[in-house]
Amino acid sequence: MKCKKVKRLLSLYAGNDLSLSMASAVKSHLSSCPECRREYKVYIQSLQEIKGWLKSERIDWDEAEWQQSVKRAAAGKITQKKKLAPWPFKPAWALGFMMVISIVISIFWLRPSLFRERSGLQPDAALIKQTSPQEVVEMTLVSRETGFKIKWFLNKNFNLEEESE
């Protein structure tokens, strides 16, 4: 094996990441080449040192913090579960439902009033009596002395519609 190839493999050889056959070839070259051997030693030293630094810099969880993180992770799952709710509860579907319901409500409740306003028709007293009796106000005046009764029927504009005794 030539120096060029060995130098390419040295980093893997330093970490025992070569196959047995390759490793033995590199090993035999190193025994006869001081230049490659020097480079190999630098690899070994640098790897050992860096591993040592990484080991000394290892951090760990504070127990309370770890427990809190686990709880948060579990809570995260719960919120995800909510997101995976059946179709009627998905936001898009809910919005669609709300729109449909609001349209239906507007048709049933708003349209008749709009119709009346647009037509400009003044309903007569008989119509008021039949369709919307709540719009006709009945007033009864009774005399204490004679017992005489006067009934007034007023429409919503307070126009006198009918009078009777």
Binding site: S11, V42, S46, I50
Partner: peptide, 17 residues
């Protein structure tokens, strides 16, 4: 993985030097 590891160790060795 071997290729990346090889590159990483080579760069580290140079920085270490």
């Amino acid at each position: 993985v071997r290729t990346h590891l090889c590159r990483a160790r080579r760069k580290l060795r140079l920085e270490f030097e």
